[in-house]
Structures are given as structure tokens and as C-alpha cells.
């Protein structure tokens, strides 16, 4: 048993972190705030060159043959950078395409030529292996020919063109483009049952990993500010009211990170309690990111309330990720209903 990443895994995360800091700095979100798509085509192509979309695609299909564990480390970095673009749905769509044997789609996604948006059912909507019906929120589906739906029973790909009238709606997050599709009754073009591969659980782990990245970035931003910002002639971090807030952020980040590792290994190895561990990761990481993002605004004072400071980017992305793949209340309802952890 060694729950920490190996040296190779840490190297992989470092390469991704360096690339994202260089090619997708958080300021890019502000720069592109008025563009129709959040996705920066140059950076997206760079991610493909780096092999990010094929990280867990088998080597014989042009991928790197890694697993959920390495993906979780990558998505933690994406969270830390609040990276704009449909990374989650695109990477998971590649897994779906591999599982159903759609080699063309695998190759196109790995090459960065096809992005896949995320579709979230609004209350009352349903989907199964045949059709999706109801109202949908689309997340970063502007340039995407396909959208991905994820649920406990399975994962579905649907052609965006089949969704009918898609209306852009203002998004709380300037790094995410939101659209609404109403009264959808569309065919599913590819379906992966959870019994074959639990893509939903994998999605929970990766979402939780992004939330942990945000929780860590908030801890680091607040700590740095508390060391350098001076009031009353001293750095504000000497005050326990500030220091203890930072310490609590460190606790939350560590807790979320540990649970994401545990859940990633559980899903990868098919442990009996994988569902409980994955839902727990989402709940714990979302809580960590929510409280850390709020504390980060507070520690930065007036600066934390400005558009110029990154603090609001964290707050807003957390809100999106909390609602993706089920919110806290839904997961808690399942966590209490499932058998005790193994």
C-alpha cells in the first residue's frame, strides 16, 4: 500500500502543470470572456500534442495507456488552472469510444480535432441506451459536434445537431459557456452501460480532482497573500484570524486530495466500495473547494472582490463543478443508502 503518486506520476503531473501555466494562464479566461467559445483553439491543439486527451487511451489506439490515477492527477492541474474548455467530457468520450470500438472517434479526439461538450439533464429529463428526452443544460458545447451524458446506469453520446434549438444563456462562470436545449427528444449515437465500464464513477473522480486542484490553488493564493500583504506594519498572516483560516484551507485540501487518490484507485481496481468512495470524493472535494474559495476571497479583502483577481474564478468554477454529475444532496442520499465502506 502506497497511496501517494509515484515519481513517474508526479513527473506527468508536473509536465501538465507547466504546460497549462504557460499556455492556459488563468488570465486567458478574462481575455476570452466575450468570445463565443471558451475553448482557446491554439491551447487545445497544444493539449493534443502533449497527449492529454489520449492519456488513458490504449497505446495501440494512439494513447498513453495510463489509468484513472494519472487522469486524476491531470484533472487536479486543470482545476488548479481553472482551465477553460470541455476537458472532462472530451476525455471521458474518448473512453466511451474506446469501449464501444469507435476507432475514428478515438483518433479524432486524441488528435484534438473533436471536442465533446457535457450535457446535464434538468429535472424531469431522462436518458437511456436509445434516447434522451427533456430539457438539457449544455456546458462548453459551442464547437462540439457531440455531447456526453453521464448517469449511474450508463454514458451516452448524442449528436449536438439532433438537440434542436440550442440557445446560449449567460453563465455564472466566464470560463464556461452555457446553453439550453428545451424539449429534446433525440437518439443516442453511442451507449456505454455502467456494468461494462463505470464512466460515471470515473467522471466523479475527475470532477473531484478538479475541485481539489481549486482547493489547493486557493490555499496557495491565500498563503502567499498572507505572507506579503502588510497591515499595521506586519504581514497579515501573523494574525491567527488569518493564519487559522489558511490552516483550515490546508486541512480541507489535504483531505480532498487523499480521498481523490483513494477513490481513483478504488475505481481503477474495481473495489466493491468504489461507488461509495467516488461519491465521497465528490462530496468531500466539493466541500473543500467551496469553503477554500470563499475563504480565499475573504483573505484577499477588497482585492478578492475584483474582476482582476483570480479569486472569483475559483468561486465560479466550484459552482459549476458542484452541480456537474450530481450535487451534494444527491450524493449524500446515496452514501447513506450504500453498504458500509469495505
Amino acid at each position: 500500500m502506497d497511496l501517494l503518486p509515484s515519481a513517474d506520476q508526479l513527473d506527468l503531473a508536473r509536465v501538465a502543470a507547466d504546460f497549462l501555466a504557460e499556455e492556459l494562464p488563468r488570465d486567458r479566461i478574462r481575455q476570452r470572456a466575450d468570445e463565443s467559445s471558451s475553448l482557446d483553439p491554439h491551447a487545445w491543439a497544444g493539449c493534443a500534442d502533449l497527449g492529454l486527451f489520449g492519456l488513458s487511451v490504449p497505446e495501440e489506439l494512439g494513447g498513453a495507456g495510463c489509468g484513472v490515477e494519472e487522469e486524476a492527477l491531470l484533472f487536479r492541474e486543470l482545476g488548479r488552472q481553472v482551465a477553460p474548455g470541455p476537458f472532462l467530457s472530451t476525455v471521458l468520450a474518448a473512453q466511451l469510444a474506446v469501449a464501444v470500438g469507435d476507432g475514428d472517434l478515438v483518433a479524432s479526439v486524441v488528435a484534438g480535432k473533436t471536442a465533446v461538450g457535457l450535457a446535464a439533464l434538468r429535472p424531469g429529463g431522462t436518458f437511456n441506451e436509445h434516447r434522451v428526452r427533456g430539457d438539457l443544460d449544455l456546458i462548453d458545447a459551442v464547437d462540439a459536434p457531440l455531447v456526453l451524458l453521464l448517469g449511474p446506469a450508463g454514458a451516452a453520446l448524442v449528436e449536438t445537431a439532433q438537440l434542436g434549438d440550442v440557445q446560449p444563456v449567460p453563465s455564472i462562470d466566464p470560463g464556461v459557456r452555457l446553453a439550453a436545449a428545451s424539449g429534446v427528444d433525440a437518439p443516442v449515437s453511442a451507449w456505454l452501460p455502467a456494468a461494462v465500464q463505470p464512466l460515471y464513477l470515473r467522471g466523479l473522480v475527475l470532477t473531484a480532482a478538479m475541485l481539489v486542484g481549486i482547493a489547493e490553488a486557493c490555499r496557495d493564493a491565500s498563503t502567499e497573500y498572507a505572507k506579503t500583504r502588510e497591515q499595521f506594519g506586519r504581514p497579515i498572516g501573523v494574525n491567527q484570524a488569518v493564519k487559522h483560516k489558511c490552516a483550515d484551507m490546508a486541512v480541507q485540501a489535504e483531505l480532498g486530495m487523499a480521498q481523490v487518490y483513494f477513490a481513483a484507485v478504488s475505481v481503477a481496481s474495481g473495489r466493491d466500495d468504489a461507488e461509495l468512495q467516488a461519491r465521497t470524493a465528490k462530496v468531500v472535494a466539493a466541500h473543500a473547494a467551496t469553503v477554500n474559495a470563499a475563504s480565499n476571497v475573504q483573505v484577499h479583502g477588497g482585492m478578492g472582490y475584483t474582476w482582476e483577481n483570480d479569486a472569483h474564478l475559483f468561486v465560479k468554477r466550484v459552482e459549476v463543478l458542484e452541480n456537474v454529475l450530481g450535487g451534494r444532496t444527491e450524493h449524500l442520499g446515496q452514501i447513506i443508502a450504500l453498504p458500509a465502506p469495505q
Binding site: 483531505l255 487523499a258 480521498q259 468512495q277 468531500v284 449524500l332 465502506p341
Partner: peptide, 22 residues
């Protein structure tokens, strides 16, 4: 919900202990 939260938090506490031992 408080029981579910407690179950989730002790699971994460175990993960944190495993990280500490690692």
C-alpha cells in the same frame, strides 16, 4: 444527511491516514 456526511468524512479521514503513512 449528517450521518451520510459523517460516513463520507471518516472515509476521507482514512484516506488521509493512508497518505500520512505512505
Amino acid at each position: 444527511r449528517r450521518l451520510a456526511t459523517a460516513r463520507a468524512e471518516v472515509a476521507a479521514l482514512r484516506a488521509m491516514t493512508y497518505v500520512g503513512i505512505s
